[in-house]
Amino acid sequence: LNGRPAQGMPKFAFTDAQIKDLAAFFVSRSQAVANRMEYKILNVVTGNPEAGHAYFDAHCATCHSAAGDLAHIAAKFDPPALQSRFLYPVTRRYPGQPGPPPDPKGQVTATVTMPDGQTVSGSLLAQDDFSITLLDANGQRRTIPLEDNGMTKVEIHDPLLGHEQLLKQYTDADMHNILAYLETLK
Rank of each mutant, 00 (worst) to 15 (best):
H59R: 15
H59L: 04
H59D: 05
C60A: 01
C60Y: 01
A61K: 12
T62F: 05
T62P: 00
T62L: 03
T62H: 09
C63W: 00
C63S: 03
C63N: 00
H64N: 08
S65T: 07
S65Y: 00
S65W: 04
A66N: 04
A66V: 14
A66Q: 07
A67Q: 08
A67K: 04
G68I: 04
G68S: 04
D69R: 12
D69E: 10
L70M: 15
L70Q: 05
A71N: 05
A71L: 01
A71I: 00
H72A: 14
I73D: 10
I73C: 01
A74F: 01
A74L: 04
A75I: 08
A75V: 02
K76Q: 14
F77L: 15
F77V: 03
F77H: 13
D78V: 05
P79T: 06
P79I: 00
P79W: 07
P80M: 04
P80C: 02
A81N: 12
L82V: 06
L82K: 09
Q83I: 02
Q83P: 06
Q83E: 13
Q83M: 15
S84C: 08
R85V: 05
R85M: 10
R85D: 02
F86D: 13
F86A: 09
F86S: 08
L87I: 11
L87Y: 07
Y88V: 13
P89W: 11
V90L: 09
V90N: 14
V90Q: 11
T91G: 15
T91R: 13
T91E: 15
T91P: 06
R92K: 14
R92C: 07
R92H: 15
R92P: 12
R93L: 13
R93F: 14
Y94G: 02
Y94P: 02
P95W: 12
P95H: 12
G96P: 07
Q97P: 01
Q97F: 10
Q97D: 14
Q97A: 15
Q97K: 06
G99S: 03
G99H: 09
P102Q: 06
D103N: 14
D103S: 06
D103T: 06
D103R: 01
P104V: 09
K105F: 08
G106V: 01
Q107R: 15
V108K: 15
V108S: 09
T109K: 15
A110N: 13
A110P: 10
A110I: 11
V112C: 02
V112R: 00
T113V: 00
T113K: 11
T113D: 08
M114H: 02
P115I: 00
P115Q: 03
D116N: 14
G117Y: 10
T119P: 04
T119G: 05
T119N: 05
V120G: 03
V120D: 04
G122E: 01
S123M: 11
S123R: 11
S123L: 10
L124F: 05
L125E: 10
L125I: 12
A126M: 07
A126V: 03
A126Q: 11
A126F: 11
Q127C: 03
D128F: 06
D128Y: 02
D129T: 12
D129N: 14
